[in-house]
Amino acid sequence: MRFHAEIVARNEDGVLERILRVCRHRGFGPSSFYAVASPLENTVHIEIHGSSQRPHTLLVKQLEKLYEVLTVVVNTRETQGVGPSLESRARPAQVRRTVYASSGHG
């Protein structure tokens, strides 16, 4: 099943490596990866397309555990094969939480 993930994260050391590592390790191999930094907000907006046999909720929950990650949206709808223009979608980061799990969210 194809998936499409949109992630907003604080732009800290290693954030892209961390996100890609989680995708690979949890069985969500990317076929395309786009990232644009927003220096004023100190965030990075990331889109990943790929495919996996695993339920996408697994990816969402594991990505949400990353300390820098602010929001994650993953859907499994078929999307256009070419990545979207990220410049057109610059938007304020939706800060959903500050510290993973200290609030016991979920």
């Binding site: 800290e12 050391d13 290693g14 490596e17 961390r18 590592r21 390790h25 300390y67």
Partner: peptide, 13 residues
């Protein structure tokens, strides 16, 4: 930092 990415809750430089 790179070596430990998969075995830490978080890491910093």
């Amino acid at each position: 930092f790179g070596v430990c990415l998969g075995v830490v809750k978080h890491s910093m430089i």
